[in-house]
């Protein structure tokens, strides 16, 4: 076990843990935001640079500060390390710059985008972004592409976090999509728009931090804050069957995996709760599901607006535990 101080909070973690995961162990304000790192997908991280933190002291043996900001998602902790996230002016300034870079090519079409309201880039730019863009050149634009008949790819909105590529690599048996070209020209693509045809391909919608990959069955149907997220389960032989239904009255508008406060899928039965395409795209009738109860949402989130019921009571919690 090693001791590490993040924003004046001390925590003891296992050796080899990254700074980001140590911060998540503390939780709350000290956790750096992450656009590309996804704890459920090994190999992610290190691409978006939003999680950069300042290391004020490298370790107990060598307490010199690290000269540059380091990516907290891929830097392992050392004993006696002192990390500054919220308390560092440099980190704050740098994060604003990163947001500006991410928004260079990102269109400001939040009123159209289906991800608005649960978009990580929206949250990030709300907190760190500038009011106006300084970018004068033309933004790169692509036409929206269909990846299979259920997923829409808006390459304009992509920030190249590579999460979906890791989903394709790790969850599906035959990888059919990846990143083409380099640098400014890189783009997510399938091999000549070959349909991604796999039972777990829909999970790339869930991992996408922006609105680049969206559910075609939910396209423009509603806005997330008008819908009520309900926890539900079904007997599915391909996945855990524990999902989140986004309902409007008795209608199911969309089905997603259950996500935690970092926007990552929650563990179900000790495994990441990825859901299969049948559950996600085809079971849109309430008869298919056993509805457990409303999901507890942070009351500061826009999704909790207009939901007048109290958070789920203890009785329903017991039912959901019984199901697991």
């Amino acid at each position: 076990m090693v001791k590490i101080t993040i924003d004046n909070v001390q925590v003891e973690v296992e050796e080899g843990t990254t700074i980001l995961n140590a911060a998540r162990k503390i939780g709350g304000e000290v956790v750096p935001p992450a656009m590309c790192y996804y704890s459920k997908l090994p190999g992610t991280g290190g691409k978006c640079r939003t999680c950069l933190v300042e290391v004020a002291a490298g370790s107990e043996k060598d307490p010199r500060p690290m000269p540059k900001l380091v990516a907290s998602c891929s830097t392992p902790v050392m004993d006696g390390m002192v990390v500054k996230n919220k308390t560092s002016e440099r980190v704050h300034e740098n994060r604003g710059a990163i947001v500006e870079f991410l928004l260079i090519n990102h269109p400001l079409d939040c009123p159209v985008c289906d991800q608005a309201g649960e978009c990580h880039l929206q949250d990030l730019s709300y907190e760190h972004g500038a009011e106006k863009t300084r970018y004068e050149e033309e933004r790169r634009t692509f036409d929206p592409i269909d990846i299979g008949d259920k997923i829409k790819l808006h390459m304009n909105r992509c920030i190249l976090c590579y999460r979906c590529v890791h989903v394709a690599d790790q969850l599906t048996d035959k990888r059919v999509h990846g990143v083409l070209n380099r640098g400014e020209h890189s783009e997510i693509s399938t091999y000549i728009e070959k349909a991604v045809d796999n039972d777990f391909s829909g999970n790339m919608i869930d991992v996408c931090p922006v609105g680049a990959l969206t559910d075609k069955t939910f396209r423009f149907k509603s806005r997330v804050w008008f819908l009520k997220p309900m926890e539900a389960s079904c007997a599915c032989d391909k996945c855990s069957g524990n999902v989140l239904l986004w309902m409007f009255g008795n209608e199911i508008y969309r089905v997603t995996a259950r996500k935690d406060k970092y926007g990552e899928v929650e563990d179900q039965n000790g495994k990441p709760g990825w859901i299969c395409n049948t559950c996600r795209f085809e079971k849109k009738s309430p008869e298919n599901w056993k509805i457990i109860g409303p999901r507890t949402i942070n009351r500061h989130s826009v999704i909790s607006q207009g939901k007048y019921i109290s958070p789920r009571s203890n009785s329903t919690k017991n039912i959901s535990n019984g199901n697991k």
Partner: peptide, 9 residues
């Protein structure tokens, strides 16, 4: 109008 729903919120 692009039906973003912000007026309704």
């Amino acid at each position: 109008c692009t039906a973003c729903g912000l007026c309704a919120v």
